[in-house]
């Protein structure tokens, strides 16, 4: 039963992620993001990471994405975005780069130590993976800039 629910959640995560990337209505994309973060929260809870799951739902789904949704509503961005194959190619390229970057970073991490706590994780990230952290910061900045670009009133 648990396994069926787990696979159902995986499918929901994938579907909502596709909805975020492919929807031509910005509002539906934001809604997809909300569903995505909520379902990831449920998955964390199912996997026994209850606190992380609750934080995921309360902070991301209940806080941040509501603000994004509100901004989209206030700026009336519900209208359909122009779709071109070039934009699809660009987003696929960016997705591939980010995926390779995350895959490379995670594959080199060593989680074999069972007494691994949050402090160790912080030490490891700050000492051994500083450039990865900085790159993630740049990536988040790029996301913020893209939000500004999307919300620009032409």
């Amino acid at each position: 039963m648990g396994l069926v629910i787990e696979y159902f959640l995986y499918i929901a995560i994938l579907m909502s992620a596709i909805m975020v990337a492919s929807s031509r209505n910005v509002l539906m994309s934001a809604l997809g993001l909300a569903i995505n973060t909520t379902v990831i929260g449920f998955l964390f809870i199912l996997k026994g990471l209850t606190f992380l799951g609750i934080v995921q739902i309360a902070v991301y789904a209940g806080g941040i994405i509501v603000l994004i949704l509100m901004t989209i509503m206030i700026l009336s961005l519900g209208s359909k975005i122009e779709f071109t194959y070039l934009s699809l190619l660009k987003s696929l390229l960016i997705f591939l780069l980010v995926f390779l970057f995350v895959y490379y970073s995670l594959s080199s991490l060593n989680f074999n130590n069972t007494n691994f706590d949050v402090k160790d994780l912080g030490d490891l990230l700050a000492n051994n993976y500083l450039y990865h952290l900085l790159s993630l910061g740049v990536l988040l900045n790029a996301i913020l800039v893209s939000y500004l670009l999307i919300s620009r009133d032409d």
């Binding site: 509002l27 809604l31 909300a34 909520t38 929260g41 606190f51 609750i54 739902i57 309360a58 789904a61 209940g62 806080g63 509501v66 949704l69 509100m70 509503m73 519900g78």
Partner: peptide
Amino acid sequence: LFIFALTTVAVYGTNLAGW
């Protein structure tokens, strides 16, 4: 915390209804 998290999600109903 569960109760708090679930009440925060309820905001979507009002948000979407208006939109």
